[in-house]
């Protein structure tokens, strides 16, 4: 087989996946840029707007808040997911009787739809008859109106989101942990390392690549969080949990201002590219070297 022909076959095998990406992602993306420069509302004539939509959103204090909320949400959310995900993985690195069942149970959140998680947690957090407030009441704590005060709402949202995504970290860190050769750990113990030292100097360096990948994926996925927030808080109260994706949704599908909504999309895209580009480079190097 000539090299030329071989390349042609390779490209042909890649054709379907690239066709999908071109038609489903790239063309709408370009269309988003076009739309962002128009006054575009369903049921109304489309007119050219220049950069008006961008001026509108960048001048909107709510958009600035949404931007800050997004950053806050990602930093806190990802840290919590990483800490707890790693913690749970460490716990499971001891073998327990019934290990497979326990792991299945802690992975269960992965199998649930954001829609169902949202509705169920909404019930649990209900201020009038929800089990969480009842438990607090029995402990002598006044009921907390979770989705009323900005900080509580944000905390509740972080809790739910972390809960849902701990398994995502676990499935990356746990395999790295159990592949650590036991001899290394034994040797460190013989050298008199305590548990903290053992974790810090032996285990952590060995699981760092897995943690790094987890960090990348969790960041990108947290940046686009939508379903849980929509079902749980709709961005409220006082837009305290309104991240950029919710802002975009409201512009596009509540106020039906498609021009500004597309402009928000373009901004989100730029932010994502900025945050993700070092990670893309690192990831692609890793993928390609294997």
């Amino acid at each position: 087989m000539t090299l030329h022909k071989r390349s042609a076959i390779g490209l042909a095998l890649l054709l379907p996946i690239f066709l999908l990406i071109i038609f489903v992602v790239l063309i709408p993306e370009i269309w988003a840029i076009v739309m962002s420069m128009a006054n575009y509302r369903p049921g109304a004539p489309i007119t050219y707007a220049g950069l008006e939509n961008y001026q509108k959103i960048l001048g909107d204090p709510n958009f600035k808040d949404a931007f800050i909320n997004t950053i806050r949400f990602v930093i806190f959310g990802v840290s919590l997911q990483l800490v707890f995900g790693t913690g749970v993985a460490l716990l499971f690195s001891r073998q327990f009787w019934g290990q497979k069942l326990w792991i299945a149970l802690i992975l269960a959140p992965m199998a649930m739809s954001p829609a169902i998680l949202g509705t169920t947690w909404k019930y649990l957090f209900n201020s009038e008859f929800g089990p969480i407030n009842f438990t607090l009441y029995q402990m002598g704590i006044e009921p907390i109106y979770w989705f009323t005060q900005a900080n509580y709402a944000f905390a509740a949202l972080l809790l739910v989101y972390t809960w849902n995504h701990i398994p995502g970290v676990f499935i990356l860190v746990y395999p790295a942990l159990i592949s650590i050769p036991p001899e290394l750990v034994e040797a460190a113990k013989i050298d008199g390392a305590n548990k903290l030292n053992l974790f810090w100097y032996v285990i952590l360096p060995l699981i760092r690549p897995a943690l790094l990948i987890a960090l990348i994926f969790r960041t990108i996925i947290s940046l686009r969080a939508f379903g849980e927030i929509l079902v749980l808080t709709k961005g409220g109260p006082f837009r305290a949990t309104e991240v950029m994706s919710i802002y975009l949704y409201k512009e596009g599908f509540v106020y039906f201002s498609w021009g500004t909504s597309a402009a928000v999309g373009v901004v989100i895209l730029i932010v994502t590219i900025v945050i993700a580009s070092p990670q893309i480079r690192m990831l692609s190097r890793q993928m390609m070297e294997s």
Binding site: I21, W31, M35, P42, R224, F226, I268
Partner: peptide
């Protein structure tokens, strides 16, 4: 082309939803 694929994965799905609606 693999790198292009990885880069595309970073695109937030919500961003395409508004333009996709009229398309």
């Amino acid at each position: 082309s693999a790198i292009v694929l990885i880069a595309i994965r970073m695109f937030p799905p919500l961003v395409i939803s508004v333009p996709l609606f009229p398309i």
